[in-house]
Amino acid sequence: MDFNADHFTLFGLPRAFRLDARMLDSRYRELQAQVHPDRFTAASDADKRLSMQWATRANEAYQALKKPLERANYLLHLAGHDVQAESNTAMPVEFLMEQMEWREATAEARAGRDHLELERLFQRLRDDLDAHYEALAGLLDDQNDHAAAAEAVRRLMFLEKLLIEIDDALASLED
């Protein structure tokens, strides 16, 4: 096995955005069961070092594939089409307007300590995200449209951040 093989090959999974999460979990565990440092406590230093490197590699690959946004990012990277999240910040005006509205609604609900409204916003955004990921899967796996997929990923980064903000607001109300 090549240490530098891509994450999908490492787990013996097809290189695609649609992924069997249970299969990923079990492949990850099978791999860790073989390479984890706990299996090598009585081994030579060379064995121990290798084991740590492989277990580190397995963790890195698992993290990169587990979350859909990171998985999409990684697929685009493999396809030689980096998302350029930092340099390419151009967004359609209507998307930015929408973002502003979300943020205002969140801030208002937070200020008014409106727990129910925050929950509602959270759920709505979650549903929104699901639909976006569904569309992203089509762009990546069926249409092979990397440019459109990269734009979708950049939007999703905004939305995921927003979801965290709403969740933070909810947590701040609980304390």
Binding site: M1, F11, G12, R27, E30, L31, Q34, V35, W54
Partner: peptide
């Protein structure tokens, strides 16, 4: 070992 793990 890794190949074995990958054999599923």
């Amino acid at each position: 070992n890794i190949k074995r793990a990958l054999a599923g």
